[in-house]
Amino acid sequence: MILDLYNYWVVIALMMVGFYSVIVRGNLIKKLIGLNIFQTSVFIFYISVGKVDGGTAPILVDGVTLYSNPLPHVLILTAIVVGIATLALALALVVRIKDAYGTVEEEEIREIDEQ
Protein backbone atom coordinates (compact mmCIF):
# COMPACT_ATOMS: atom_id res chain seq x y z
CA MET A 1 0.00 0.00 0.00
CA ILE A 2 2.59 2.49 1.09
CA LEU A 3 4.98 1.37 -1.60
CA ASP A 4 2.21 1.82 -4.12
CA LEU A 5 1.90 5.44 -3.29
CA TYR A 6 5.37 6.49 -2.11
CA ASN A 7 6.02 8.09 -5.45
CA TYR A 8 3.13 10.42 -4.98
CA TRP A 9 4.17 11.33 -1.48
CA VAL A 10 7.63 12.34 -2.44
CA VAL A 11 6.13 14.40 -5.22
CA ILE A 12 3.80 16.04 -2.72
CA ALA A 13 6.78 16.87 -0.55
CA LEU A 14 8.43 18.50 -3.57
CA MET A 15 5.32 20.49 -4.31
CA MET A 16 5.16 21.75 -0.78
CA VAL A 17 8.79 22.84 -0.72
CA GLY A 18 8.06 24.91 -3.80
CA PHE A 19 4.77 26.19 -2.43
CA TYR A 20 6.47 27.21 0.81
CA SER A 21 9.12 29.15 -1.05
CA VAL A 22 6.45 31.03 -2.97
CA ILE A 23 4.59 32.14 0.09
CA VAL A 24 7.38 32.84 2.48
CA ARG A 25 10.15 34.34 0.42
CA GLY A 26 10.39 38.08 0.11
CA ASN A 27 12.61 38.11 -2.96
CA LEU A 28 10.54 38.24 -6.10
CA ILE A 29 12.91 36.03 -8.08
CA LYS A 30 13.09 33.48 -5.32
CA LYS A 31 9.31 33.36 -5.29
CA LEU A 32 9.30 32.57 -8.97
CA ILE A 33 11.83 29.78 -8.54
CA GLY A 34 9.57 28.37 -5.84
CA LEU A 35 6.64 28.62 -8.18
CA ASN A 36 8.67 26.84 -10.81
CA ILE A 37 9.45 23.96 -8.47
CA PHE A 38 5.83 23.78 -7.38
CA GLN A 39 4.68 23.47 -10.97
CA THR A 40 7.37 21.05 -12.04
CA SER A 41 6.43 18.78 -9.15
CA VAL A 42 2.83 18.80 -10.28
CA PHE A 43 4.11 17.71 -13.67
CA ILE A 44 5.87 14.77 -12.06
CA PHE A 45 2.64 13.91 -10.31
CA TYR A 46 0.78 13.79 -13.60
CA ILE A 47 3.38 11.71 -15.35
CA SER A 48 3.36 9.29 -12.43
CA VAL A 49 -0.35 8.82 -12.99
CA GLY A 50 0.36 7.81 -16.57
CA LYS A 51 3.02 5.25 -15.70
CA VAL A 52 2.15 1.66 -16.52
CA ASP A 53 4.33 -1.06 -15.01
CA GLY A 54 6.09 -2.96 -17.71
CA GLY A 55 5.00 -0.52 -20.37
CA THR A 56 7.23 1.39 -22.75
CA ALA A 57 7.19 4.89 -24.08
CA PRO A 58 4.07 5.43 -26.19
CA ILE A 59 5.73 5.19 -29.55
CA LEU A 60 4.10 2.43 -31.54
CA VAL A 61 6.44 -0.42 -32.32
CA ASP A 62 5.44 -3.73 -33.79
CA GLY A 63 5.30 -6.47 -31.22
CA VAL A 64 4.89 -4.23 -28.18
CA THR A 65 1.47 -4.20 -26.62
CA LEU A 66 1.91 -2.43 -23.31
CA TYR A 67 2.57 1.29 -23.45
CA SER A 68 2.50 3.99 -20.85
CA ASN A 69 -0.48 6.29 -20.96
CA PRO A 70 0.20 9.05 -23.51
CA LEU A 71 -2.52 11.42 -22.37
CA PRO A 72 -0.79 12.77 -19.23
CA HIS A 73 2.29 13.32 -21.36
CA VAL A 74 0.31 15.48 -23.74
CA LEU A 75 -1.25 17.43 -20.93
CA ILE A 76 2.07 18.05 -19.29
CA LEU A 77 3.70 19.13 -22.52
CA THR A 78 1.07 21.82 -22.64
CA ALA A 79 1.49 22.62 -18.96
CA ILE A 80 5.27 22.98 -19.32
CA VAL A 81 4.73 25.48 -22.08
CA VAL A 82 2.24 27.35 -19.97
CA GLY A 83 4.75 27.33 -17.14
CA ILE A 84 7.58 28.83 -19.16
CA ALA A 85 5.23 31.41 -20.62
CA THR A 86 4.14 32.47 -17.16
CA LEU A 87 7.74 32.57 -16.02
CA ALA A 88 8.82 34.77 -18.91
CA LEU A 89 6.05 37.24 -18.21
CA ALA A 90 6.78 37.21 -14.49
CA LEU A 91 10.46 37.88 -15.05
CA ALA A 92 9.65 40.75 -17.36
CA LEU A 93 7.54 42.17 -14.56
CA VAL A 94 10.40 41.75 -12.12
CA VAL A 95 12.71 43.64 -14.45
CA ARG A 96 10.25 46.50 -14.65
CA ILE A 97 9.71 46.45 -10.90
CA LYS A 98 13.43 46.69 -10.36
CA ASP A 99 13.51 49.70 -12.71
CA ALA A 100 10.57 51.38 -11.01
CA TYR A 101 11.29 50.61 -7.37
CA GLY A 102 14.99 49.94 -7.38
CA THR A 103 14.53 46.69 -5.49
CA VAL A 104 13.08 43.22 -5.89
CA GLU A 105 12.41 42.60 -2.20
CA GLU A 106 8.73 42.48 -1.33
CA GLU A 107 9.14 44.26 2.01
CA GLU A 108 11.01 47.18 0.53
CA ILE A 109 8.44 47.57 -2.23
CA ARG A 110 5.66 47.67 0.31
CA GLU A 111 7.52 50.28 2.32
CA ILE A 112 8.02 52.43 -0.75
CA ASP A 113 4.35 52.12 -1.64
CA GLU A 114 3.24 53.15 1.80
CA GLN A 115 5.21 56.37 1.73
Binding site: V22, L35, Q39, T86, A90, L93, V94, D113
Partner: peptide
Protein backbone atom coordinates in the same frame (compact mmCIF):
# COMPACT_ATOMS: atom_id res chain seq x y z
CA UNK B 1 3.59 46.42 -11.94
CA UNK B 2 3.53 45.31 -8.36
CA UNK B 3 -0.20 44.61 -8.52
CA UNK B 4 0.30 42.58 -11.64
CA UNK B 5 3.11 40.58 -10.07
CA UNK B 6 1.04 39.79 -7.00
CA UNK B 7 -1.87 38.72 -9.14
CA UNK B 8 0.44 36.62 -11.27
CA UNK B 9 1.75 34.70 -8.29
CA UNK B 10 -1.69 34.20 -6.78
CA UNK B 11 -3.24 33.37 -10.13
CA UNK B 12 -0.56 30.83 -10.92
CA UNK B 13 -0.96 29.17 -7.54
Amino acid sequence: LWASYQYLVVGTI
